[in-house]
């Protein structure tokens, strides 16, 4: 049972109040109609399953109904940070930072 800090309610709440809403930072293609089937398939179906740091979306379903992002260690279940929609994570895995070119 996680204990999750809601960045909108600004305090920790029990996991029962939240729903997990999948991987974060998947942008909807700007022009879906001109995506190839493969690009659209990647957007729709392909998700990371990292051992370690993962960025995911949660929604405070039984609370303020706001979506937010969370960086979580999938091994230890430690929540490293939560941040609002539109914000970027402060904590990223080495692999991700290389991929982003910010390493």
């Amino acid at each position: 049972m996680f204990y999750i800090y809601c960045p909108y309610c600004q305090e920790h709440r029990e996991e029962e109040e939240f729903h997990a809403a999948g991987q974060a930072h998947i942008a909807r293609p700007a022009d879906p109609d001109n995506c190839t089937d493969e690009e659209w398939g990647d957007y729709l179906y392909f998700r990371k399953n990292p051992r370690g740091l993962h960025h995911e979306m949660w929604v405070h379903a039984a609370g303020c109904r706001k979506f937010f992002n969370m960086t979580r260690d999938t091994q230890s279940y430690e929540i490293k940070e939560v941040y609002k929609m539109g914000e970027q994570p402060q904590i990223v895995s080495e692999q991700d930072s290389i991929a982003r070119g910010t390493a």
Binding site: A21, G22, A24, H25, I26, A27, R28, A30, M57, F67, M85, G86
Partner: peptide, 8 residues
């Protein structure tokens, strides 16, 4: 889902 891509 996604990021806010056009916050401005």
């Amino acid at each position: 889902m996604s990021d806010v891509t056009n916050v401005e």
